[in-house]
Amino acid sequence: MSDLTPGGTSESGRGGVSWYEASARQRVRLLLDAGSFTEFVGPEQRETSPHLQVFDLPEQFDDGMVVGAGTLGGGAVLVAAQEGRFMGGAFGEVHGAKLTGLLRAARDLTSTPVLILFDTGGVRLQEANAGELAIAEIMRAVVEARHAGVTVLGLVGGRSGCFGGGGLIAGCCSALAVSEQGRIGVSGPEVIETNRGVEEFDSKDRPLVWRTTGGKHRRLIGGADAFADDTVDAFRACALDLLRTTGPLTLDTLRNEQARLRERLDRFGACADARDVWAKRGVDDAGAVPGLPADDFIALAGRVAEPSHDAR
């Protein structure tokens, strides 16, 4: 266990620190109650990937995943954070196993919530089978933990977004908080363009990419439960709020989700663009959504987005 503080960051509180710009370690330290974080299998243990040297690639001492325990608003939580700048936050063997272990502990403890700070492009290709299995094991562990009564929150706002298997894990969480930068999806825009052509999805069209995968669309369509401005403070407030509102995963939860997703397909399945979805959702000026400041957007989402319900 260790106490690792990143250098170069002011100690004067989390306030305006950008979630997007912060490292995984900074996010964890500033999100939790001051001084409360204890890391498990930290970088000093040098549990690096056993596979990257095959590709002559550099390792990172924590394999891009920080896991540990701390408190949030005085309550005990387990927390995991991906470093999106190391190999795009991708899931490798060690990276994934840390999160699997954390979730299995939560399952056994049955009451300590888990916060997952996603920042990932999906599976790490150099260890693709291990990464794919890690994602399957994590999803299983999330569902087991939730079934045992544990709340598992996902926070998405990092530079790598939350794609591939990361998007599927996010879809297993009790609730998600997302910032505008927090893109969520399965196939990234570049992957779709490579496989299906630029006519299907122009990955260079940044406004299109943001309104199709970005946090505002996810919030409006019901893919996320809370919208955070891009600050650690905002994510902390969202996390505290969501911890109060979520319940265990049951058959009813999934029945409700089935109905929720069915309704989404029925209502929006023929929409060609996110702006059409938002207009159908009841947004008067859909074209203005991307430019809305966070406060205004949160107010808008509160009026038109699906009410928070037990359907995830």
């Binding site: 999803m139 299983r140 569902v143 087991e144 079934h147 939350c162 998007g167 599927l168 894990i169 996010a170 879809g171 297993c172 969520i184 999806g185 399965v186 196939s187 992957v191 779709i192 496989n195 299906r196 299907e200 999805f201 199709t212 995968t213 669309h217 996810r218 369509i221 019901g222 893919g223 995963l249 058959l251 999934l254 989700e257 089935q258 997703l261 989404r264 397909l265 929006f268 399945g269 929409c271 663009d273 996110a274 979805v277 995830r312």
Partner: peptide, 29 residues
């Protein structure tokens, strides 16, 4: 997974996760 703008627009991650959750829950039950 089907790679298309429509699938991503509609939140494919939630749909695939929904199926997986159902299967995992089945086992747990």
């Amino acid at each position: 997974q089907r790679m298309s703008k429509r699938d991503e627009l509609l939140g494919l991650n939630e749909f695939l996760a929904h199926l997986a959750k159902g299967l995992i829950l089945a086992d747990l039950r």
